[in-house]
Computed example of a mutant assay.
Amino acid sequence: MDFDPSPVQRARCAEIGAAVSERFADHVTSADPESARLAWKDAADIGLTGLCLPEEYGGAGLGALDTALALEAFGRSCPDMGLVFGVAAHLLSCAVPVREFGTEAALGLLSGMAAGELIAGNAMTEDEAGSDISRIRTTATRRGGGYVLDGEKSFVSNAPIADVYVTYAVTDASAGFLGVSAFAVPRELSGVEVGPPLQKAGLQGCLAARVRFDGCEVPAEFMLGEEGSGAAIFQHSMAWERGCLFAGYLGLMERQLEECVNRVKQRRQFGRRIADFQAVSHRIARMRQRLEGARLLLYRACWLLEQGRTDVRAIALSKTAVSEAAVANSLDAMQLFGSAGYLADHGIEQQLRDCLPTTIFSGTTEIQLELIARESGL
C-alpha cells in the first residue's frame, strides 16, 4: 500500500488549487443564470468540467482517483460549494454515462461538456422516486425513429442553466428494473419545460429546478446503452458520483479545519487562548480524525473503481463517512466560532448549510447503510 500521492498528482492538485484561488478570489455566489454560467466558464478554463473525459473530446482522461484528488483541490480552494457540487454532478452523473454508453450522436455532446460549453443536469429524481429507480413514472414511448418522453423530474441539479439532461424513463412497465432506459436529452428539443429555480437551504451556487417532458420527441440515437439498461447505467453513474463527488467535501473540511485552528489560536477567554482548553483542543482533534478517516475510505473506493472493481460496500462506506463527517465537523466549527459562526462574516453557517444535504443526495445515509449491510452478508 502506498498512501503518498505521486509527484504528478501533487503538482496537478497544486496547479488546480492555485488556479481556483486566483479565478474565484472575488467570486460571489449568484442565483442569476448568466452569472452562474460565467463561473462555469472559469471552472472549465481550469479543466474541471472534463477531468475524467477522454482526451479526444478535450478532457483530461483522468481515472477515478485522480478525478477525486482534483475535485478535492477544487473544494478546498473554492468558496462556492454549490459550484463545486454542480460541476461534479455534471461530470460524474451525466458526462460519465454518456462517455460509457453513448452512441456516436450522444458522444458528439462530450466535447461541449468537457469544455463547459454544454452544461448537463441529472434528471432522475421524481416526487415518488429517488433511490428507488423502479418507482419512476416518466415514460418513453417508442414512435417512429425515436421515443416520446412524458413525465416530470422533481429535482434536477444545474437545470436552469443546463443544455442537456441525462434522464431515465420507463420503456416497458411490465419489465421492472429491465424496463427503464436512459437518454441524453438536448434542452433545445420541443417538449422540454424547465421550472423556476428551487429555493434551497444551501448549495446556492448550484441552481436546481423541476424539469417536465411533455410529448418530448427524442431521436433514438440519444438513448444511452440498450433499451432496458437504464437501471444498470444509473448504478454505474452513481458509483462514480458517490465515489468521486464527495472528494469536494474533503476539500471543504480541510479548509474549514484550518480556519477553526486559526480561530481558536487567536481567540482569547479568561486570559488565555481558547485552544489551550482541552474541550476545544479535543473538538479540533475529533474534526481531524473524521476528516482523515473519511479521506482514506474515499481514496480506497476511488482506487478500486479505477481498477475496474466497483465495490458497492467500499463506495457506500466512503459516502457515509464523508457526508456524516462533513455535517459533524460543520456543527463543531459553528461551536468553535460561537456567535461569530452564526453570522455570515466567516462563512461557517454557509458551510453547515452546504454540508447538510450530503446525507440525502446520491442516496441517503439510510440507503448506504442498507447497502453496507447487504454486502456484509445480511
Rank of each mutant, 00 (worst) to 15 (best):
Q204T: 01
G225I: 01
A314T: 02
A89N: 09
S174V: 05
A123S: 01
E227L: 04
S35Q: 13
G377V: 01
V8D: 15
V312N: 08
S6D: 12
G205F: 00
L250D: 10
A314Y: 04
L53R: 11
K265V: 02
F337E: 03
R143P: 03
I133W: 01
A321F: 09
Y249W: 14
G293K: 08
G251A: 06
A285K: 12
S229Q: 15
W303R: 14
N262V: 05
D150M: 03
P5W: 07
I274E: 14
A173V: 10
A25I: 02
L178A: 13
L62P: 09
L91G: 12
V194H: 08
L336F: 08
E227R: 14
L298K: 06
E126R: 04
V20M: 10
V218L: 03
S30C: 06
Y165P: 09
A64C: 08
V180G: 04
R273Y: 02
L296E: 14
A279K: 13
I284P: 13
V280L: 02
R309Q: 12
V148E: 15
Q235N: 14
P79I: 06
N262L: 10
T310I: 00
L291Q: 13
G75W: 01
S190P: 07
Q9A: 15
E370M: 01
F277H: 12
E366N: 09
L198C: 13
E349Q: 13
N158P: 09
S190C: 04
G377T: 01
S157W: 00
E226N: 15
V156A: 04
T320C: 14
V327H: 11
G202Q: 07
G59S: 05
V185H: 07
T141H: 11
G121S: 08
I372A: 05
R212F: 00
S35A: 14
T171N: 04
A275T: 02
Q256C: 04
T320K: 15
N262K: 14
M253G: 08
Q289C: 04
T171V: 03
Q235R: 15
P357K: 06
W303G: 12
A373V: 04
W240F: 15
G363H: 05
S111E: 06
V20Y: 12
C355Q: 10
R143S: 11
G50N: 07
G144M: 02
L107N: 11
L343G: 14
A123D: 00
S21E: 15
A316H: 05
D127C: 03
D26E: 15
Q351Y: 05
V322S: 12
A18P: 04
V156M: 03
L110F: 03
Q235D: 15
Q278V: 13
A120M: 10
V170M: 01
F183I: 03
Q269C: 11
C244N: 11
T141Q: 15
S131M: 06
A373Q: 14
